[in-house]
């Protein structure tokens, strides 16, 4: 049995009096690629913020490699999970290599000087996502797709067993979306556990092995393999209000 990298036990989360999700339970093993799917406002980002430890105001328990996110310091948290969020701005005058180097933050000392191991981790991360050729280009000169690759490389340089991505394809064109999803599949096949939230259900389902469907009416999360989720018809039920049905042969909603 492969090692559990993420375990979510009876998590309930909300804002003030309003509960968004109740009694969420699931776990992810090493090397799985899971995708969170749900309509707008169903709590995808809320759940992700709880799992990453950004918001610790929830009941229940989230364990990263067996350790509770509520008890981990920021530094130790950053050694167990990396986060790729949707920020499109900032650091325009940093080179690609300098940006990827930020991934070594939890491992370097006060001055942030990179050691041999750190430099190797940065080099490998850039090679893994295919950006080694433009290591010296500025972030502000890159396309959205290239910038997203840099952010993924930065998360890889963090050398964590688990990577969270919040809407990783939202600003990308079709080609870049497919390329990003394929790259994430490749990284998962190499042993990285990946959990991403997305509106791009078709592209995500094409590469995912585990699917988490958020059902806003029930404030619940259904977790299963891609085949189980599609066969259960839960996708049709969740998106029925928008008049959508999941076409299994096309792998997309119609």
């Amino acid at each position: 049995m492969s090692k559990k990298v993420l375990e979510v036990e009876g998590v309930s989360i909300g804002y003030g009096e309003r509960t968004v999700l109740e009694n969420v339970n699931f776990s992810l093993s090493a090397g799985s690629l899971a995708v969170i799917i749900g309509p707008n406002g169903s709590g995808k980002s809320t759940l992700l913020r709880a799992l990453t430890g950004e918001n610790k105001g929830f009941t229940g328990n989230v364990l990263l490699s067996g350790e509770s996110v509520k008890e981990l310091s920021q530094r130790n948290l950053a050694r167990l999970r990396a986060v790729v969020a949707t920020e499109r701005n900032g650091g325009g005058a940093l080179t690609v290599e300098e940006t990827v180097s930020i991934g070594r933050f939890p491992y370097t000392g006060l001055l942030g000087t990179l050691g041999t191991e750190d430099k190797e981790a940065v080099r490998l991360a850039m090679a893994n996502v295919g950006i080694a050729d433009f290591a010296n280009r500025f972030l502000g000169e890159l396309s959205d797709g290239e910038r997203q690759k840099v952010m993924i490389a930065r998360a890889l340089a963090q050398e964590t067993p688990l990577m969270f991505l919040d809407e990783p394809t939202s600003f990308l064109d079709v080609a870049a979306r497919i390329e990003t999803m394929r790259m994430l599949r490749r990284l998962a096949d190499a042993g990285k556990t990946i959990l991403l939230s997305t509106h791009d259900s078709a592209a995500a389902l094409a590469v995912a092995d585990t699917v988490l469907v958020l059902i806003p009416e029930e404030r619940s999360v259904i977790c299963g393999s891609k085949q189980e989720i599609i066969a259960s018809g839960v996708l049709d039920r969740v998106f029925a209000h928008a008049g959508l049905r999941f076409d299994e042969s096309a792998g997309d909603f119609r």
Partner: peptide, 21 residues
Amino acid sequence: YAKSLNAMLFGSGFASAAGLD
């Protein structure tokens, strides 16, 4: 503070996720 400031270039959410208090 150079190391922390570099992480803060992308906003506090990014910096926090990178391991900064």
